[in-house]
Design a binder for these strands. Structure first.
Lengths: 344, 344
DNA sequence: TTGAAAGCGCTAACAG
DNA sequence: CTGTTAGCGCTTTCAA
């Protein structure tokens, strides 16, 4: 149950003064005499007074809550972003209320409704992989409720967003593969309607182009972002008559799934097939062989998203700033240089 | 900014009735005439009325917020537990406010204070590895503020808690190693004052005992729960004159760190050294070789913790129920049977 | 069957 | 320099 917290009224009664005097004294209002101020502050300190956020919220019409919607809370990728958001939010005296859409559009819509009921002051969102229309977010925009997207964004809505430069990253990977002797570079992508899939595809194509490689549509497969589906996609690639000699996956899960599957089918990494993914530092180094990957600046992405949020909450005006974070390619064993194959 | 939400007052004005009538109608109060009730509910629906939780909270003195403190938010272990807590919380109409202590006692203390300021109604906590006194939690208990521990608990406080049966798990691992031909079984433990370290040590010793193996104190090393420290601990074991032929680590991080280090030093797993850890399903299967591990029922642990929380919030009485969750040993390659060594 | 009023904790305009 | 009052949105007792 918890004992009732101390209130201004309690302090006022104890000192025989009015509530407003106490209120003012605690804010060092110049109207209050120094003696009185000191006396009141001392008592407040002693009684451990802290203002009731509910009362303040009611008065000011603000809950100091931000609704955060992510596709999945159980991956390092998102939890790290959330940490970044949280840090900035805390600095501003805000909470975040985290909800997972579980990659489901339906759940995402419900999440928006529920968070709205809870009177969050705005939203920071990464779209679910299923989300292909945006009515539920359009409504927020119409009502001038602050909204910021990160990673998977909806460009049309014209809201601020923060992205990682996946296009650049995939180009780098592609060229890196080529430079290490790969000619048939395959790419396991995510759902086509997601901006991250699209951007990364562009980078892939540009990369091929710059290397003078032809685009073979068989070498680009899509999958939803589950392990199972990623394994199937890998199998598909491995069944090609003209097999790939390099594969990269569009995220953590896919990269690992591909690795499992490639090894299972008896191919050597990187001798037979080079591998790369989008993952974080730690797990890339634990797998065998250590995985070449582009490291997403996740924490920073969260920070930037939160900063954008506070900008739009403060200005009150909607801006549509777009922050693009650089991504680094970290080369490890899984994409080491191919040795010249013996002549048959 | 967001347009103001609709209020009872708005509805009342629009219909030319009093606020209390509207309030009652929305609760189907029998005093209100059916016509009126219907009319009011229809308008509320149309205007998308939802009650203001701030106002309700102020009235009822409840924030519907639970403070959750974990040592680290960025691991699958905790994020999965958090998911479990969240699910149950949501069912009860509660939010959780997550704070990470970053394994620091100081931050943990601050977290408690801050959450208290925010008027959370109670706490669900996993102790930081540094926490060796409990004044900050004792204060909560004294003030009858609901508190539930999970995984790393403080027994003395007499608050409800949920644990995994680490003692049983370590016994099983030890025996499993022995049955597969290991004789010098090493154990990398966490900080000694943590209950999980203590329990698992007991299981380890019992296991050795049941196998008729002597306890060699050189084979049990402690480390704080960082990767670096775990690697050092592993090195220590590998430098022993009489080396271990099996190692298990007390958590995810340690198990992986040990794996990296063992491989780095050129030992084969499991031929030279068998390995096992406490980890979740996915990562255990991605590493090479796949890691034998005890799978923590993390999601369930979160659910149970939240259930205990609501029990204690509802009853108002503090109970000290203790829930012990079973742990399963999942055998994989990293601890496969040793082949008989050739006679030298 | 409905309305008026008090109160949850707080601030701010207005009086004194 | 300090107190009174109204009001944020809601429920609930008391009155009508």
């Amino acid at each position: 149950m918890g004992k009732r917290h101390i209130s201004l009224k309690d302090l006022a009664k104890e000192l025989g003064v009015s509530i407003s005097t106490v209120s003012r004294a605690l804010k060092n209002h110049p109207d209050i005499s120094p003696d009185m101020t000191e006396k009141i502050q001392a008592l407040a300190e002693e009684r451990n007074y802290t203002p009731n956020p509910l009362a303040m919220g009611l008065l000011r019409q603000q809950t100091k809550m931000i609704g955060v919607i992510v596709p999945d809370i159980n991956t390092h990728f998102y939890s790290s972003i959330i940490s970044g958001i949280e840090k900035v939010a805390e600095d501003h005296g805000y909470f975040i209320v985290i909800t997972s859409s579980n990659e489901s559009k339906k759940k995402e819509i419900i999440a928006v409704q529920n968070l709205l009921k809870s009177r969050v002051e705005g939203f920071i969102v990464c779209l679910s992989q299923e989300t292909d229309d945006f009515a539920h977010f359009q409504k927020l925009v119409n009502n001038e409720i602050p909204l910021v997207f990160f990673d998977r964004v909806c460009e049309e809505l014209g809201v601020p967003s923060v992205l990682a430069n996946g296009q650049d990253a995939t180009k780098k990977i592609t060229k890196h593969f080529f430079e290490n002797g790969c000619k048939r570079i395959a790419y396991i992508s995510g759902p086509e309607h997601l901006n991250i899939s699209q951007n990364r595809k562009v980078g892939y194509l540009n990369g091929l182009n710059e290397c003078g490689l032809e685009y073979d549509e068989n070498l680009m497969v899509h999958c939803n972002l589950s392990i199972e589906d990623a394994k199937l996609a890998t199998q598909e690639l491995l069944q090609l008559e003209n097999k790939p000699d390099a594969i990269f996956g569009v995220n953590d899960t896919i990269a690992f799934a591909a690795m499992i599957e490639v090894k299972k089918q008896g191919y050597k990494i990187p001798e037979d097939i080079s591998l790369a993914g989008f993952t974080d530092e730690f797990h890339s180094t634990v797998v065998d062989p250590p995985l070449t990957s582009v490291s997403h600046p996740t924490f920073q992405m969260g920070e930037e998203a939160a900063k954008l949020f506070f900008e739009s909450i403060e200005k009150g005006k909607s801006n549509n700033k777009r922050i693009m974070l650089p991504i680094d390619l970290v080369v490890r064993e899984s994409s080491a240089k191919k040795k010249a194959k013996p002549f048959i």
